[in-house]
């Protein structure tokens, strides 16, 4: 009834992981990866967000419905951004920006 109580050590671990990943994303930004800089930054950010959602926001222990709700939100965000690219990406069909080509 009272919901899942996570151990403090887990919270600390997640916090440390988030801090390390923050450092990593800054570090990666200073390395010239060409078009992959953006990709790396976004993957790290997505990973951090996933940690927060999964552990801090207790989605790991939440009902299927809650998980479905989260997934729906992300799915429609993907539709929004993806279909924007259908137009804006195809206008610049020959000259995509570095992080997309």
């Amino acid at each position: 009834m009272s919901g899942h109580v996570s151990p403090i050590s887990l919270y600390i671990t997640i916090f440390m992981a988030l801090m390390v990943l923050t450092g990593l994303t800054v570090f990666a930004a200073f390395i010239d990866l060409g078009q992959f800089n953006f990709l790396v930054a976004m993957i790290i950010a997505a990973f951090k967000a996933a940690l927060v959602i999964w552990y801090f926001m207790h989605v790991k222990y939440a009902s299927k419905l809650t998980k479905l709700t989260v997934a729906t939100g992300l799915f429609f965000l993907a539709i929004l951004l993806g279909l924007f690219l259908v137009d804006y990406g195809s206008k610049a069909f020959t000259q995509l920006p570095p992080f997309l080509s």
Binding site: T66, G73, L77, L81, G89
Partner: peptide, 28 residues
Amino acid sequence: VVGMWVFLVTEILFFGGLFAAYMVYRIW
């Protein structure tokens, strides 16, 4: 909990509009 998450989903889309605009201008 579900209600809150549904609200947060609207927030995702709220900031999503800004991210879309950001994406377009970052490309340009």
